[in-house]
Design a protein around this nucleic acid. Structure first.
Lengths: 131, 131
DNA sequence: GTGCCTGCAAAACATTTGCAACGGG
DNA sequence: CCCGTTGCAAATGTTTTGCAGGCAC
């Protein structure tokens, strides 16, 4: 099935392109609404799913209910603040040991193995607020 | 802490103790219901949150809507099957590079830093079903 | 008794889906 | 035209919450 061009999908890609804030579907919806006040939630969710399936976006699952999305496709990791629910990028590091484990899983019969590392804790901003 | 003893909470701990299937709240509710047919969903969710906060259980966030829970507290990782949504334990490995990154985050002002690694792909069972 | 805990039901969220209309190729 | 896509609203799924009564300590 071939995807057609659509103003709504392009708008979502525009919003996500270079966006480092890891927004949730609803935050993307709000942002899109500013440009196209008639775009619907269903369309945003449908397009986010499609873009994740097509490899244009990454879905980040954290324990705050809503999924977050990321347009940075190169290998990198995230930090999730348990207090303000914000998602941060984690400075790059070379996870050769993790890659080894991926290979090991492959040998055990798992296929298309990928991985995600999510650090969590309290972010610097929230730490400051405690004083 | 001021937690009281409660039959419902003990039941949930019983169900989770030694349980390697990483069930969702609803699966735990079904299981609990077999023993105590009057236990309510609210009670299961309330107790799961309490047990996670107290460090008795781990919450695993995967992209299938519902959180999964785990009673194995020693450091280990998970594999999430994108097809059947099951969560598997991953053979242990020593992620010294990940620990290094945790320390680095600490120096950058992040506190109480923890981490989770979730591998994903298709599990051996689901691979077989394709033939 | 005090106040944590429970069951119940309703509410609050997050996400998907059925459908008729729209519009890209 | 075909059929992917949209807006809308309703449905679904997950989790939280308000409240009155119950129970642990």
């Amino acid at each position: 099935m071939q995807n057609r061009n659509s103003a709504q999908r392009n708008l979502i890609l525009d919003i996500m392109d270079g966006n480092k804030s890891h927004p949730t579907a609803d935050q993307i919806y709000d942002e899109a609404r500013k440009v196209d006040p008639h775009i619907s939630r269903g369309t945003v969710y449908r397009n986010l799913n499609l873009l994740v399936d097509n490899g244009n976006l990454l879905r980040i699952s954290v324990p705050d209910g809503a999924d977050h999305f990321d347009s940075t496709l190169v290998q990198h990791y995230h930090f999730y603040c348990r207090k303000c629910n914000k998602v941060y990028d984690v400075p790059e590091f070379c996870p050769s040991q993790v890659i080894e484990t991926e290979k090991k899983l492959g040998k055990l019969g798992f296929q298309s193995v990928n991985h995600n590392i999510v650090f969590d804790g309290i972010c610097p901003d929230c730490c400051k607020e405690n004083h």
